[in-house]
């Protein structure tokens, strides 16, 4: 749920974009084509496969350059315009090149009243960029996002459409940024149910490395 902060100016997308990938690179491998064909099989009409195919393409190419969207549309067998309309509707599809790590900070609802903005502003100061911007080294993009469905472990953020990082504090943000600078993505964290803690003495899963228990949220310094 990126691109927060509705500006009042809607910019025209580059209608004649420079290619970002060479012709040789702008192809799907046969394995990927097979996967997309598999997606198409899953729906009554090929159109249904577009979202999965866009995900696949975004993982491969990093972002959905128009040429990539066209490639996906052709592979799925639907009009390019339809695929482009879909890609721009959903916020998790990156239409522009982003930093290597996209930090999606939730400031919505529960996160707002539990210090989501404190984390956002701290990150902005720390990385010396505003939300929506990318650091000069191309490593980080910060986005303010809408509710990510982890309200009990607020404040929280998500890294590049991947792992959630819960119960954020400044220290935790520092550690996260350090780790990412060293190329270490945070690992999956299982949040222990309070009732499990009481009845089972901790997290019920034995197959996860990292668990965290729900805890009292911090006092928000700012809510805007």
């Amino acid at each position: 749920m990126a691109e927060s902060g509705h500006g009042k100016v809607v910019k025209l997308p580059d209608r004649d974009p420079k290619p970002a990938f060479s012709k040789e690179d702008l192809v799907f491998a046969s394995e990927e084509k097979k996967r997309i064909a598999g997606f198409v099989e899953e729906y009554e009409k090929p159109d249904g496969a577009i979202m999965k195919a866009l995900w696949l393409a975004q993982e491969k190419f990093g972002f959905l350059h128009p040429d990539v969207i066209q490639l996906v549309a052709d592979e799925v067998g639907i009009p390019y315009a339809q695929a482009y309309g879909v890609a721009t509707f959903y916020t998790q599809y990156y239409k522009n090149k982003t930093g290597k790590y996209v930090l999606d900070v939730c400031t919505c609802f529960s996160c707002q009243v539990c210090g989501g903005y404190d984390i956002l502003h701290y990150l902005e100061e720390k990385l010396e960029i505003h939300k929506g911007e990318t650091t000069d080294d191309g490593l980080f993009t910060i986005q303010e996002v809408e509710c990510l469905g982890a309200c009990g472990s607020a404040p929280m953020l998500q890294v590049t459409n991947g792992p959630y990082v819960h119960h954020l504090t400044r220290e935790k943000v520092d550690a996260l940024v350090d780790a990412l600078q060293n190329g270490q993505m945070p690992s999956f964290t299982s949040i222990t149910l309070p009732q499990d803690e009481d009845e089972m003495g901790g997290n019920r899963r034995t197959d996860v490395d990292k668990t965290e228990a729900y805890r009292t949220p911090p006092v928000a310094e700012t809510v805007e």
């Binding site: 539990c114 309200c151 009990g152 729900y214 009292t216 949220p217």
Partner: peptide, 14 residues
């Protein structure tokens, strides 16, 4: 029940 906000022990409770 998903309880969040200014409580001592937020979380999902059945």
């Amino acid at each position: 029940y998903g309880i969040s906000g200014h409580v001592n022990r937020p979380g999902v409770y059945e």
